[in-house]
């Protein structure tokens, strides 16, 4: 027995190739994403969310595709004397002219409203999440790293914001804005959207800021931060290049759990009539559909299914992301 010379030659020529492929290491984020890719539930949820995102982005295209029109209803031609739609549910069968039916009284198409509702919902939620996350990251990093009086002041502000009742502030803000911009209806819409985004962002950053502050407090005592200071790395680089990469997990988890919360909040505020006006929203549709529930349930089901599906998919995805990024908390 013994190793044949040919075998040796083969293994020698192979080795450098294998080695050069092997040496690139995988970052913890890459490992987490890989873990996420093997999670079937997460992938299904991701697909659902992706469908919603596509609907939101291509809402105008989709309405054209289905031959429907936003706010194209005519109360005279599209509704009967009892104010129910003249075609489609609830009185007639399914029709491609209005796949989800028409709205009673106005005769507006509900499918178009649903598509644009998805757009509002995801758009508002995304913007609020991004704004709240950025605020949370910066404030948390500064509070954790500053120590001393600045930390105490920020902690105090966080406590104040946490103690303010969100719904109450939102309810109070709406009439103020309406009375301030009531004279200009065309600006009112925009202002009200801004006010909604502002309220959602301003009440969404505290949890993440607290989380990040705590993480930074523990990380800043780690020796790699001390090493960076001994090297002379500027404080800003220490915060954003040394500490921030170590906070990817809590940030990603906070984003993925914050999105569904903002979707719900947007719908809830719209239902209460203090969300966006003049823009289709699932919450408003729900609000208007409640009185027709006994006679026209589809009117209510469409937006409710939309909200539920999106929120459940986002929540399950968020859980999977948390498990992938933070394997220690896995059940």
């Amino acid at each position: 027995m013994g190793i044949q010379p040919t075998e040796l030659v083969v293994s020698n020529t192979d080795e450098p190739e294998v080695k050069s492929q092997d040496v690139a290491g995988r970052s913890p984020t890459q490992i987490a994403l890989d873990r996420l890719r093997h999670d079937k539930i997460a992938m299904v949820c991701l697909a659902v969310v992706a469908v919603f995102v596509l609907i939101a982005i291509f809402a105008p295209l989709l309405t054209d595709l289905f031959g429907v029109e936003l706010e194209g209803g005519d109360p005279v031609t599209d509704t009967k004397a009892d104010s129910f739609p003249a075609i489609g549910p609830p009185d007639y069968g399914f029709t491609w002219e209005a796949p989800l039916g028409l709205e009673p009284r106005t005769g507006n198409d509900l499918l178009a409203e649903w598509f644009y509702g998805a757009r509002t919902s995801l758009g508002v939620a995304t913007f609020a999440t991004v704004a709240a996350t950025l605020m949370g990251i910066v404030i948390g990093l500064v509070a954790g790293f500053a120590r001393g009086w600045l930390d105490r002041v920020i902690a105090f502000v966080i406590d104040i914001f946490l103690s303010l009742p969100f719904i109450l502030v939102a309810l109070a803000l709406a009439p103020i804005i309406v009375s301030r911009f009531g004279a200009q209806p065309e600006r009112l819409e925009f202002v009200q959207l801004c006010a909604l985004l502002f309220v959602l962002s301003v009440f969404g950053w505290m949890t993440l800021a607290r989380l990040i502050r705590g993480e930074v407090l523990s990380l800043r005592e780690r020796e790699f931060v001390q090493a960076a200071r001994v090297i002379g790395v500027p404080t800003r680089s220490i915060l954003f290049k040394e500490l921030l990469p170590n906070l990817v997990a809590p940030i990603v988890v906070s984003i993925s759990l914050g999105l569904p919360a903002f979707v719900t909040a947007e719908a809830g505020l719209a239902f209460l009539g203090i969300g966006v006006v003049g823009i289709p929203s699932w919450g408003q549709t729900v609000n208007r559909a409640v009185e027709f529930f006994s006679t026209y349930p589809l009117f209510l089901y469409a937006p409710v299914v939309g909200i539920c599906l999106l929120v459940i998919a986002l929540n399950l995805l968020g859980d999977a992301v948390r498990d992938a990024f933070d394997p220690k908390t896995r059940r």
Binding site: R222, E242, P245
Partner: peptide, 19 residues
């Protein structure tokens, strides 16, 4: 800082795990 450097005790916490 160039002239005075430091080697730390715990090799498990002195290197940034994300770099």
């Amino acid at each position: 800082r160039k002239e005075i450097q430091m080697i730390f005790q715990d090799p498990y916490s002195s290197l940034n795990p994300r770099h």
